[in-house]
Structures are given as structure tokens and as C-alpha cells.
Amino acid sequence: MCGGAGKPEAKDIYRPEPATLARSEGLTAHERWFEVKLDSGRPLGHMPGQFVEISVPGIGEAPISVSSAPGRNGAFELVVRNVGNVTRALHGLPAGARIGVRGPFGTSFPVDGAMRGRDVLFICGGIGLVPVRSAIQYVLDHRPDYGAVTILFGTRSPSDRLFTDETAKWAGTRGVTYMETVDRGDAGWTGKVGVITTLMPDLKIDPARTVAVVCGPPIMYKFVIIELHKMKVADENIFVSLERNMKCGVGKCGHCQINGLYVCRKGPVFRYADVNDVREAV
């Protein structure tokens, strides 16, 4: 450390490494897509479902899920909803702007574990698609390693849908079932209307072969899990990604705790069987 008793900087768990916003693009009125490159040129080294701490100098730091699968050209992608100080600042930054990155942190979707060789059911509400997209891309990049793939995506309105080009591609992919719904339609909407659980009773899945991945707003989990239980999917085969305030990312600051669990270290991805008796979880 400079200015004091010498501690090597590399060991400081709070020090971001320099990175650049390579490209960005608005996705909806509130969400923006970013491609980030670490100045060191090293790949981030994340697995789907993990998050990074993004620093905007002078504004602060915020935990953001990585939205791309690992190993795509050394850069990684984020989708950021404009809801707080850091995210508002990020939205205002031009391509080429300097930011800081720490991570990746936390647990990942078990793409190389419990999901391998199984049918996979992705259930995403709103920006819950952002971290899950990383796992979907990973599964599609390694297609022979998985069985049937089903993707459910629900948003408040048609204009809140993310990655519409990519979801259209998923819909057209053999062996992939893609279904979407909106809470409220608009004049041009001809698709399904209703909360995401309304898509579930029509699903034909084999519960013994299926692993479910769930990510969405806090209210969504318990209702989706009730439906999964009706479909006889066991808690061991349900993985949830839970949002909390992962301020430090390294298990110290206390903000992200779900009862005794530090989400930044034990999560954000949990096997539901491990948290179904943890009262603050869902």
C-alpha cells in the first residue's frame, strides 16, 4: 500500500482492477448493455451466475451479475438497470470510459455439475434473465451435454423484454422450448398475458430428469417454487439466484446476509434444498 506500512497491493481484497467500457447499447428504457474489457487483457474467469463489483470512480461500487458465458473473446457483458447512484452513473458513461472491476465473486449455476446431462428449465422474471443468460449461453455452447432446454421469460410489459433478438433465436433453436409472457400487454402485443407462473401448468417436463434455474424479483420465487412442487420437481433440483446488497463481495461487510448466510460467498446461486428452511431466503 502506498502512504503507509508496506502491504503488497495485490493482496488488497477491496482494490478494483482497471477496466474499460468497450461498447454499450440501450436495451429498454431502464436497462443498458455493456461490454467490459479488463485492461490486463486477462479473461474474467467467471462461471455463469457469478457477479462482479463494478466501480465508477467518485460514485462508488455496486454488485452486477455477469450476463455472458465465459470464454467469449476475453470481454464480458453486463446488463445494468438504472436504479441507484452507481448504475445511473454507468448509464451516463461513454464507450472507452474507465471503470474498476473486482471479482468474479460467489457461486455459479451448476452447468458442469447438477445440470449436466439433464433437462434444464430456466425461469426468469424481468432482469432475472441477465445472470441466467450466461447459463443459457453456456448450455447452448455445449449443447450435447444437456437434454431438453426450456426457457420461460416474464416481464411487466412488452417493452421491458430484454435481448429480443437473442430470445427469438432461442425460440427457433431445435431442442429449445422458449415461452414468454407479460403482466400487461399493449396495443401491438399478441403474445401471452399473465404472470410467469401462468406458463408453468402447460409445461411438459419429466421431473425426474429436470433441473430448474430460477431468477427474478423477490416476490417471484415462492410462487414459482409452488408451481415447481406441483410439477414434482424436487428441492435438490431447483437452483435459485438471490439478490441482496453484496456491498463488499468478500464476506465482511454484513449487508448481504440471509440469516447466517453471506450471499456474496455462499450465493448468489443456492440449491433450494439448502435454503428452503432459511427464513429470510425467499
Partner: peptide, 8 residues
């Protein structure tokens, strides 16, 4: 855009 650790 660069961060340095400090400690007194």
C-alpha cells in the same frame, strides 16, 4: 480510473 490501496 486507477485505484491504489492506502493505509496509515
Amino acid at each position: 480510473g486507477r485505484y491504489e490501496s492506502v493505509s496509515d
